[in-house]
Design a protein around this nucleic acid. Structure first.
Lengths: 201, 201
DNA sequence: GATAAAATCCGAACACTGTTCGGAAAAGTG
DNA sequence: CACTTTTCCGAACAGTGTTCGGATTTTATC
């Protein structure tokens, strides 16, 4: 009864290879022109066969979105923990933007192709993971005294603000400012520093 | 030879009415499901006829995007000029987010449905208009001494940073945080104040 | 007002798309 | 071996954006 492993493994690996083909197509043709039928062609299957592995095109995109999410989490985990909390906060922000610039398609998948159907509670928690990472860094920065909370501007609010700043920079650089040849890294760092400075006493 | 006016007027007004029906469809069915054929049905034309007025579906969306852009400019122009420059800067940021929340479809059109083909130089200038508005407010804030530039963090960089912050807040509220019931206005204002504070001496 | 010209409109067709369904082939189980 | 489950696909359906030829209507010119 090797069904337990072999069968499920096969199913899972085929699923993964289809996702891989789909992601490759997104990267070189753009997600707007992604077609189920072309995925099937490149993967060596008939269009109907893909429905054996996914509920439809939307679920394929949702899966890719989830994968992209994990990739983002990896980026955000890179900054070492043995640096001053306020510095680390900046590095996390920089990592966020770096992810967006180095993986524009993944970034788009994470934030602009979220499944239209309300995600379940558990997915929400998972989806909040990057938020949790930033939040934890803010907590440490507060404990170290680098930044301070004030009334009406609490932990969640600060986390949200930093996330917004990073998200805005990343989004603008990948869309409206994509053809600008500025040294965004330097400016971004200054922006984070300015905000952190404003959070100080 | 009344062709000059009548003819062109008619053409322009039909064009406008098609855009209007298209926008209505976007608002109540979502842009993802917007279909050229349905626009034609609702507008009382055959699908082929729309090509007398637009190059295709993409140009219709591009036109709507341009209209949405104008609407954003109006929002950004609302804050009065007879208030302290640093306060005004915050009000402009708040107006940016307000536009996004009150007109989510328009906001999406402006920032996530930008025409894939490189826009021309003149369109670029027009597209930069909100940026110009924010920039001008920053200039006045600098002149008043409310905020200061430092080396490597100049006018453009500050403008870009404020834009990013507002853009991030707007985008997140319209997507990932759309189901959260927080008092975003208050938090947003605190975030802007914090950043402006960081920009001070 | 008749005539030529230009603008407007649409039916039909083409090449796509996502999805469903029935059944054939293959693989695993007893 | 038979039996069940999984896998796969051809065919079809409804829908899409777009093109083209020609008919109809509106405008300009004589």
């Amino acid at each position: 009864m090797p069904e337990n492993k072999t069968r499920q493994n096969r199913h899972a690996s085929v699923k993964q290879s289809i996702l891989k083909t789909a992601m490759a197509l997104i990267i070189d043709k753009g997600i707007a022109k992604l077609s189920l039928r072309e995925i099937a062609r490149k993967a060596g299957y008939s269009p109907a066969s893909l429905y054996e592995y996914f509920e439809g095109k939307d679920e394929i995109i949702a899966q890719l979105s989830a994968e992209a999410f994990d990739r983002l989490s990896i980026y955000l985990s890179q900054p070492p923990t043995n640096i001053p909390p306020d510095k680390r906060l900046i590095e996390i922000g920089m990592a966020y933007v770096k992810f967006a610039r180095e993986n524009p398609e993944h970034y788009d998948l994470v934030f602009n192709r979220l499944p239209s159907k309300r995600s379940t509670a558990s997915e929400e928690i998972n989806a909040a993971s990057p938020y949790i990472i930033v939040r934890q860094a803010v907590v440490e920065a507060i404990e170290s005294g680098s930044i301070v909370m004030s009334r009406g501007y609490d932990l969640e609010a600060i986390t949200y603000s930093l996330w917004s700043l990073a998200h805005g920079m990343a989004t603008l650089q990948n869309t409206h400012l994509s053809q600008f040849e500025a040294d965004f890294d330097k400016v971004n760092r200054s922006a984070f520093e300015t905000f952190i400075k404003g959070l100080g006493t």
